[in-house]
Amino acid sequence: MRTYLALSAAAAVLAAAGATAYATTPDRTEKTLPLAGMRILISNDDSMQAAKASNSDGLGLYELRRAMCAAGADVVVMAPWQVQSGKGTAVTNGGVLTAQRRTALPAGYENDCAQAPARGAVYGVCLADGPCTEDSPSATPADTVQLALRAGLKAKAGWTEAPDVVLTGINSGPNVSASVNDSGTVGAAVAAIDQGVPAIAFSSSGDESNLNFPRVNYRAHAEFGARFLAGLRQRSLLTGEFALKVDYPDVSTGRRAGTPVWTRVGDGAVVYHAFEQRGTGDSFDIALGLCPVDGTGEGECAEGRKDADSTWLLDKGHVTVAPITWDRTYGTPAGARRELTAIERYVEREAPRP
C-alpha cells in the first residue's frame, strides 16, 4: 500500500538539490521561487475542460497550475476527461484508459508553465481504447491519480520517481462535513496517500447563489495554496501518512478570507441527496437538498462539532484545514502523531495569511 513511500523520500532529496540549482541562476532565487525544483501532479474531479460559463468544470485546476508554476514547480496535470463530481474514491476495474494531451489550453493559461521542464502538460483521461472524443466516458478522479503514479507520469513525462506532492482541485464548491465522503477531489488525494505520496485537496466556495464559481475565488485560493505548500516544504512537513483538505471561503464580494483554522470534518451535512418518486412508478428524481449554513438544521443537517470545517468556513469565513486519512478502521490511533501536531501548529501559528 505504501509503494511509493521510499520513492517519495528520494524525490524530496532530489527536489532539495533542484531548488539549490535554481537558486544559482540569475533572477530565479529560492526567495522568489519557493517551489523551485519541486515536481507536482495535479488532478481534480471537475475535469480539464474549463468550458462552462459557471466555471464549474475545471477552471480551478488551471488557476492551481498557474500558481504552482509561478512559484517554480514542475507540473503535470492528469485529470478526468469529463466532470466526475461526487465520485469519491471510485475506481474503474477494467477496460482501457487513454491519457490524451490537451494542446489548446483555455485562453490566458497557455504560457503559465513555459519555463518548467514538463511545460505544465495537461492530460485528460478517458475510458476508451483510442483517442478521447467529446462523448468519451471519463476516468474517475482516483483512476487518474493511480494511472499517473503507476505508469502515466513515467510514460508521458519521463518521471521515474513519484512526484513530491499530489494536488487535487481546485474544486468548484466547498467539500465539508458529510460531502467529504462523496468528494472526488478528496478521493483523488486519498488515492495519492494510499501510495505514500503527500497530497492536498483544495476546494473553493462559490458565490452567494452557489451556482457560479468566480475566478477571483480560485485565484485567491491558488495563490494562498502555493504559499501554504511552500511553508510545508520549508518545514519538512509533507507527509504521505495523511492528506490535507484546504477549503477557501467566498471572497468575490470583497470580503477578506479569515486566517487558516485547524478543523475536523463536520458530523452534519451541508448538502444531501434527496429523492422524489415519479408518480407511483419505479423511478425517482435525484436532487440536492441544501441545509442551513448557520448550524440550526435538524436531523442530518445538525452540526455537533464546534471545530467543524463547515462552521469555520461557511459561517465564519475562514480558510479551513483538516487532515484526511486513508485508514477507515474505527478507533485507529494516528500513526504520525508528531507530524499531525507539527502541521496543526503550522496552520494555527505560522501558515500564510490570505
Rank of each mutant, 00 (worst) to 15 (best):
L61T: 03
T329A: 04
V96D: 03
G130Y: 08
Q234C: 02
G206R: 11
A269P: 01
G60V: 07
A287P: 00
T332L: 07
V186D: 00
G266V: 00
E208Y: 05
I200P: 03
T296R: 11
G268L: 06
S310A: 15
R305K: 15
G37W: 07
N175A: 09
D129K: 04
G304C: 03
P333Y: 00
R255T: 09
R219Q: 13
D143N: 10
R337M: 06
S56M: 12
V347D: 04
D45V: 00
A21Q: 13
F284R: 14
A36E: 14
A178M: 05
A9E: 10
G196V: 03
A104W: 00
L97P: 13
K52S: 13
A71W: 08
A12P: 00
T144C: 15
H221Q: 11
G95V: 08
E161N: 05
Y62E: 10
L64H: 05
K245I: 03
Y248H: 08
E241D: 14
Y62Q: 03
Q49A: 10
A226Y: 00
K306F: 07
A139Q: 05
G187A: 08
Q277S: 02
R338S: 07
S203N: 12
G225M: 03
T140K: 15
D135P: 02
L33D: 02
V75F: 05
L14E: 14
G240D: 03
D315A: 15
A99C: 10
S136I: 03
T329V: 12
P354C: 12
G94T: 04
S283K: 09
L167S: 07
V319D: 13
V216D: 05
I200Q: 00
E30S: 15
L238E: 02
A121M: 09
T25V: 09
A16W: 06
A201Q: 06
N171M: 11
G295F: 06
R227L: 07
G94K: 10
K31D: 08
D135V: 08
N175W: 04
I40Y: 10
L127P: 05
G169C: 10
G295Q: 09
L153F: 10
G130E: 12
G231E: 09
R227I: 03
S138L: 01
A220F: 03
P26Y: 07
N217L: 08
T320M: 04
V180F: 07
N181K: 14
S252A: 00
G335C: 04
G72Q: 03
A322S: 15
T98V: 13
A118W: 00
E344A: 14
Y218A: 08
D129H: 09
A6T: 06
R219L: 10
G130K: 12
F228K: 11
T144P: 09
D135A: 13
N93S: 12
D74Q: 02
D164T: 07
T133F: 10
Y4H: 10
R101V: 05
V270M: 14
E208W: 06
I42L: 15
P117N: 15
Y272V: 06
